[in-house]
Amino acid sequence: MSPKVKIHFESELAQALDFIRSKDLESAWTALAQAHILGQFDAIPHLRVHWHMFRLGLLSLNVQEIAGQIPRMILAIPGSITGKAPKGNTGLSNVGIFQPMDVPEDLQMILQQGSKG
């Protein structure tokens, strides 16, 4: 992960954790989805996001997310290393685990800036 992308990734993750602390769970899910898109091609950040999604699923008693995050945590590292993680996927259990998705424009710009070094 480039330093530019990492800054945005860490910011989204920190925001998600702040939202969790303030009990704004909907905003936490959104921030985690954003972090997932930014970090999904780097193994450890990818796994970190799924871990936090799993924890948020437990906190919110969301059985679908709890169950959906377990295979995602197992596949996060291999998916990142092999490049098989589906581009743009939010990482949430309401979308297919291998379903590519459109990357939002703001995140496209961050990822493109990061690839330029």
Rank of each mutant, 00 (worst) to 15 (best):
S2K: 14
S2G: 13
P3A: 09
P3F: 05
P3C: 05
P3H: 05
K4E: 15
V5D: 01
K6W: 09
K6S: 11
K6C: 12
I7Q: 12
I7T: 11
I7C: 05
H8P: 04
H8I: 06
F9W: 07
F9L: 07
F9D: 01
F9V: 08
E12K: 10
E12L: 05
E12M: 12
L13M: 15
L13T: 10
L13F: 14
A14S: 14
A14I: 11
Q15F: 15
Q15S: 15
A16L: 13
D18L: 15
D18G: 03
D18P: 01
D18R: 02
F19G: 02
I20M: 14
I20T: 11
R21K: 15
R21S: 13
R21D: 12
R21Y: 07
S22K: 10
K23D: 08
K23C: 05
K23E: 14
D24W: 02
D24S: 15
D24N: 14
L25A: 12
L25I: 12
E26I: 04
E26T: 07
E26G: 13
S27L: 13
S27N: 13
S27P: 06
A28C: 08
A28Y: 08
A28L: 05
A28N: 09
W29S: 02
W29E: 03
W29Y: 15
W29L: 05
T30D: 03
A31E: 11
L32M: 11
L32Y: 09
Q34F: 13
A35H: 06
A35W: 05
A35P: 07
A35Q: 04
H36F: 05
H36A: 07
H36V: 07
I37V: 15
I37A: 08
L38G: 00
L38K: 00
L38I: 01
G39N: 00
G39R: 01
Q40E: 06
Q40I: 05
Q40M: 15
Q40K: 00
Q40H: 06
Q40A: 08
F41D: 03
F41L: 12
D42R: 05
D42M: 03
A43R: 10
A43C: 11
I44W: 11
I44S: 06
I44N: 06
I44R: 11
P45R: 00
H46P: 01
L47R: 00
L47P: 00
L47T: 08
L47H: 00
V49W: 03
H50G: 15
H50N: 12
W51Y: 07
W51Q: 06
H52I: 04
M53P: 02
M53S: 02
M53T: 00
M53A: 01
F54E: 01
F54P: 01
R55D: 04
R55V: 12
L56K: 10
L56N: 04
L56E: 03
G57L: 11
L58E: 05
L58T: 00
L58W: 13
L59M: 10
S60Y: 04
S60V: 07
L61G: 06
L61Q: 09
N62K: 07
N62G: 09
N62S: 12
V63H: 00
V63I: 10
V63Y: 04
V63M: 08
V63K: 05
V63L: 15
V63S: 03
Q64S: 13
Q64M: 11
I66F: 04
I66Y: 00
